[in-house]
Design a protein around this nucleic acid. Structure first.
Lengths: 329, 329
DNA sequence: TTGTAGGCGTTATCAG
DNA sequence: CTGATAACGCCTACAA
């Protein structure tokens, strides 16, 4: 690999000058046109590429943004990640993605790896499970990072302290529930979630509040998963019960798609026999024209990157959401 | 941040000894138990974290594996990426993900960024479009990397030279087509693809070959997209035509899901009115019990990592595939 | 078994 | 406008 030294030598200037040209630092440290030209040409002929490692060593941090995702396969998080990646690339950063399965130990080891690599900031996608083993250790690690000046952003409710950019989970579920209630649905079941998972529990709380306020009895089922497979299974079980609900509110779009598949497989009509609504607003939901709470997933990612790249700007307030009325309700 | 020097000082040993303990290099360079203990303790109390930047600078490459994905939202590529991430983490590498939209210019700039960061290897997920502008520049860049010893792996047919691990796209489409044909379907249409996109064109070729061999007329539609939305649109258009086929083979599972949604929306029955098959074997397909060619996506990712982490082992032969018979045919 | 010293490629500082 | 030089944190010959 050609180094800055090589370029400087070939251009007949000092490494300092070469560095200034190649970094556009020639604002404050002017460089003659002839020198600039020589450096550019030398760099081109040598195929010079700067070393991120050396710069990171010098500057104390790299242009890396770390993402710790609960599940990179879940479109909900994938859309966030995509938003992060796009914004990061625009700002000249590259995105490091880690899969952590909501396991605090995995999260911590990935977090440490990211820190070792001098990440400029680390973003958590996905909330945590109350009291899960390893939570305290992770919190300690996050705390240290914060203390040392590395921004940590959470795009979901988390039990450790960090910059948080989230939409109000309780409110989303409340709103969608009220929406179905005013459409005339009476027996609305909630499908999906994970015991202790903050975001899911908040959604259930919102659902419950809406139901109580309208004098209906809440009914939470399939509280053991957040993906298509678990949504499918939970709905199948539900359909086998003596009384089936006339509408389903699912903890997220993925569960809703699973529910939709199950209802379709059972030969029932949507929404005539059972209506379905999700929370998320992912593309998959859109193709099935799923009624859902549309969350600005990519935008959340973009905002997180903003916080890292330009910390001075302060914490942005989370963007709003809206109800997308599809033909599943 | 505590440095190796600090740890050594606190432990009362030299940096060399500290380094040896902290890297497990004390195999070839034995360290006394007391020194080892002192170093470990010092590291712990100081909260020592090694600097990936410094190591990368010293070693000439970092423990980063780059992934350039056509679309990180597409489960097909996301499953590959997940496989890569898991294998990489196991080997002590972190995964850098870049989204490139099948645009050679974007691919090139991401590729360069990855190289600047000293990636140990770079993996391409998704094939390329014949003659797309920028292809030559990207090829040149890839060539340089190869020449300088950076492994480049392609998990899809690509026009530049690189280590390639792909299943036979032509054969997969041929097989699934024959499968439907022997089930008695006569008028089978092919849905989806992108003009010039290598993987898609190969699948179409396989479909054509099977149809010709069975004396049927091929019919390719919706040749302008590979995702759920385009699959949905193409199928809607198809259903509006005077004669509708009795089966659909979709270029990938995503298109197939889109097709399924369209047929469902149209009120037709699957497979009675129209059968559907995909190619991919992603989880979403599984939930809808889609008949599909099951590709070992995660495994492909794992193999790519293998190539990078352990180049001496040589290029693995691509794993096989199988037909998954669902209830959509 | 332990330590010393040089250098990886960059950039900031300071001196022309 | 230009350049010499000193770090940044780590690894590893080489020496003891």
């Amino acid at each position: 690999m050609a180094t800055l030294r090589d370029v400087a030598r070939l251009a007949g200037v000092s490494v300092t000058t070469a560095s200034r040209v190649l970094n556009g630092t020639d604002r404050d440290h002017p460089v003659s046109d002839v020198a600039r030209a020589a450096v550019s040409e030398a760099a081109a002929t040598l195929g010079y590429r700067r070393s991120a490692a050396a710069r990171a060593l010098k500057n104390g941090h790299s242009h890396l943004i770390g993402v710790i995702s609960a599940d990179i396969l879940d479109p909900y998080f994938a859309e966030m990640t995509r938003g992060i990646e796009i914004a990061a690339a625009q700002a000249g950063y590259v995105t490091v993605v880690a899969n952590a399965n909501r396991d605090p130990f995995q999260e911590r080891s990935r977090f440490q790896a990211l820190r070792e690599h001098g990440a400029a900031g680390i973003i958590f996608c996905g909330s945590d499970i109350e009291g899960a083993p390893g939570t305290a250790e992770l919190a300690r690690e996050v705390n240290r990072a914060l203390k040392e000046g590395t921004p940590v952003i959470s795009l979901a409710p988390r039990s450790f302290a960090s910059t948080t950019i989230v939409v109000d989970n309780e409110a989303t579920a409340y709103d969608i529930t009220v929406h179905l209630l005013t459409q005339g649905h009476e027996d609305i079941a909630f499908v999906g979630g994970l015991p202790g998972l903050a975001a899911a529990e908040m959604r259930i709380a919102g659902y419950r509040r809406a139901m109580y306020e309208h004098g209906k009895l809440p009914r939470v089922t399939g509280h053991h998963g957040m993906n298509q497979v678990t949504g499918h299974a939970a709905t199948e079980a539900l359909l086998a019960e003596p009384s089936i609900p006339d509408a389903l509110i699912c903890t997220n779009d993925e569960s809703a798609i699973g529910a939709l598949a199950a209802i379709w497989h059972a030969g029932l009509r949507i929404p005539d026999d059972i209506a379905i609504a999700g929370i998320g607003g992912t593309d998959t939901g859109r193709v099935f024209d799923l009624t859902s709470i549309e969350l600005p997933l990519g935008e959340l990612g973009r905002l997180a990157v903003e916080c890292i790249v330009n910390p001075a700007a302060g914490v942005p307030s989370p963007p709003g959401y809206s109800i997308r009325e599809g033909r599943t309700t």
